[in-house]
């Protein structure tokens, strides 16, 4: 379970202080599929980064499975990111000069998985995302949809329970978007907690619950089938 209590995060943009996340408190249950929606600058991505420990809070606490991650040191935060989270970004954040296989393998190397197991796990996960035939291809040679599937493969290869997806379909056409959303639904079905940040309400409708943010505050939090624009 993820519990956010009075979380705040402020950025300085020039002379101005912008409250990206303003006293947000919420709970996300295990194996829940949550979509966070809102306009640009509403604080969706910041919220996701805080939950994934890619950024730090100014105040408040984020408790993940009983551990307050805002109080962890750098080493424990790295351990948390390694074991508990998998990230998917709109910009993919893959290594363009590495092959598909190597990009996925990076996560296993960091986790110190023995080399003989690495191959097996990478091939399995590439099969799941439909890229087993492209494992030797450099990422720079792939289409956007394929790159996003590599990112998903990398996010799930370590079997992290929480998947944080920030606009995963932002750069994709409708066909590829559909494929990616199907993959996320499958992951949810396999027991992962999915936090999807999107501004596309159709994608958000795939989730169990939709949280809407405005100016860093939660303005709506309800089941997706009840959510209307």
């Amino acid at each position: 379970m993820i519990v956010l209590d009075n979380v705040c995060r402020t950025f300085r943009i020039g002379e101005e202080l912008v409250k990206a996340v303003d006293h947000i408190s919420l709970k996300i249950n295990d194996n829940e599929f949550v979509a966070v929606v809102g306009r640009s600058g509403s604080g969706k991505s910041t919220l996701m980064n805080l939950i994934g420990a890619l950024d730090h809070v100014d105040s408040g606490s984020i408790i993940v499975n009983g551990t307050d991650i805002t109080k962890l040191n750098n080493r424990d935060l790295a351990e948390y990111r390694l074991k508990s989270t998998g990230f998917i970004f709109q910009a993919f954040h893959l290594e363009p000069l590495y092959t598909v296989y190597d990009n996925v393998r990076i996560a296993l190397m960091i986790a110190d998985i023995p080399p003989r197991l690495q191959k097996e796990k990478v091939i399995n996960v590439l099969k799941k995302v439909g890229l087993e035939s492209k494992n030797g291809v450099k990422v720079s040679k792939l289409s956007g949809g394929e790159r996003q599937r590599v990112a998903i493969a990398r996010a799930i290869v370590n079997d992290a329970p929480i998947i944080l997806a920030d606009e995963p379909c932002g750069n994709l056409d409708s066909l590829n978007s559909g494929l990616i959303m199907d993959l996320l639904k499958t992951l949810h079905k396999y027991g992962k907690t999915i936090i999807l940040v999107t501004h596309n309400i159709n994608d958000a409708k795939c989730a169990d619950r939709i949280i809407e943010l405005k100016d860093g505050r939660v303005i709506r939090d309800e089941a997706s089938d009840l959510f209307s624009i």
Binding site: G52, N74, A78, L82, H93, I106
Partner: peptide
């Protein structure tokens, strides 16, 4: 790249 490694769970020292 270093930050991507950190995102994936590497420490800064690593």
């Amino acid at each position: 790249f270093i930050m991507r490694l950190k995102m994936l769970g590497a420490t800064t020292g690593n």
